[in-house]
């Protein structure tokens, strides 16, 4: 039966074409992913498992867990291991500073987003645009500006002394506080924009309905507006928290040596300390921390969203 034969061949030809189209469309993205994400990641894991010679260069092919051991233990001269919490402490500090920054951003960002979302529509675009204005200046310049503001002889301390609130200048620069303020300032738009996007979609008649049903302003905020903004709040928190964990410039400038964060420690290992395997291992540990945070979000926070 030539007819069936023909349609069979046509079918197979069509199948091959579909496959070709698929390869053509998915191909570039897949290649990007492999080349720019999986490959470097693999390389990082590989380097973290290599030995390092005395001058700091990687001895390729000599596998060792030394970098990971170093993360928790300190190797004494007699080769015995002693618990060393310094690096873990830096990780913990990064974690708490990032949480604090996320909290501060939320505290400032939510009212800002709410304010923008409640303006007349013709104003909103302008206000959203204005929140991005700080990005027009280089991150480095903005952080230097914070140094000038926060230092002992800066305008904040001078102003407070002038008003007689304090006698001695407050030590604000090179503290965790300075780092958190700097990070909040840098990442605030990442909090404002997703919350605004969620609030803008909210039907403000729900607020009237809530007032109508005996909810006070505060109850309306908790019972109606925050649930409506919840997806935006979650997105904003992720967008602030994750880059915060790995931030480099802000803690380097505003934290000095005392408030070092993971990003600075990793930078140090690849630079001055010349210990690539250890730097790679730290990078991998950071990745794990972020992954764990995300898993926590997926399994603990997300279900609440669908409550």
């Amino acid at each position: 039966m030539p007819d069936t034969d023909n349609s069979d061949r046509l079918e197979r030809k069509r199948g091959r074409e579909a496959w070709r189209v698929r390869a053509f469309t998915i191909g570039p993205a897949a290649a990007m992913l492999i080349l720019l994400t999986l490959l470097p990641l693999g390389l990082m894991v590989y380097i973290s498992l290599q030995e390092r010679d005395w001058s700091g260069s990687v001895i390729w092919g000599n596998y060792s867990f030394e970098a990971y051991i170093r993360f928790i233990f300190e190797r004494k001269l007699d080769d015995s291991l002693q618990l060393n919490a310094d690096y873990v402490r830096i990780f913990a500090r990064s974690f708490w500073l990032s949480l604090l920054t996320t909290g501060l951003s939320l505290l400032v960002g939510f009212p800002t987003a709410l304010f923008i979302a409640t303006r007349p529509p013709r104003w909103r675009a302008t206000l959203v645009f204005l929140t991005t204005v700080p990005f027009w200046t280089n991150l480095l310049v903005r952080n230097y500006a914070w140094i000038l503001l926060l230092r002992d002889t800066g305008p904040i301390n001078a102003g407070l002394q002038e008003l007689g609130v304090i006698d001695e200048p407050l030590a604000m620069l090179y503290t965790n506080f300075a780092v958190s303020v700097g990070l909040t300032y840098s990442f605030l738009p990442f909090m404002v924009l997703p919350i605004y996007a969620a609030m803008e979609k909210m039907d403000f008649r729900l607020v009237e309905a809530s007032f109508d049903l005996y909810a006070t302003r505060l109850q309306t905020l908790w019972q109606v507006m925050i649930p409506a903004a919840w997806p935006g709040i979650i997105a904003g928190c992720i967008l602030v928290f994750v880059p915060c964990l790995g931030s480099y410039v802000t803690p380097a400038l505003l934290g000095g040596g005392k408030s070092m964060m993971v990003g600075n420690l990793i930078g140090l290992q690849f630079g001055a300390a010349r210990n690539w395997p250890f730097g790679a291992a730290l990078g991998f540990a950071l990745l794990t921390l972020i992954l764990l945070s995300m898993l926590f979000y997926v399994f603990k926070v997300r279900p609440e969203e669908n409550r």
Partner: peptide, 30 residues
């Protein structure tokens, strides 16, 4: 929120994150 007056809105304005029962109980809970 201090008037013993309730409204049925044209667009219903039901709270999307709450169930029917929670919507109906909203006023009493407040």
């Amino acid at each position: 929120f201090r008037r013993p007056v309730n409204t049925v809105f044209q667009s219903y304005a039901l709270f999307p994150h709450l169930t029917c029962a929670q919507n109906i109980g909203f006023g009493l809970a407040r």
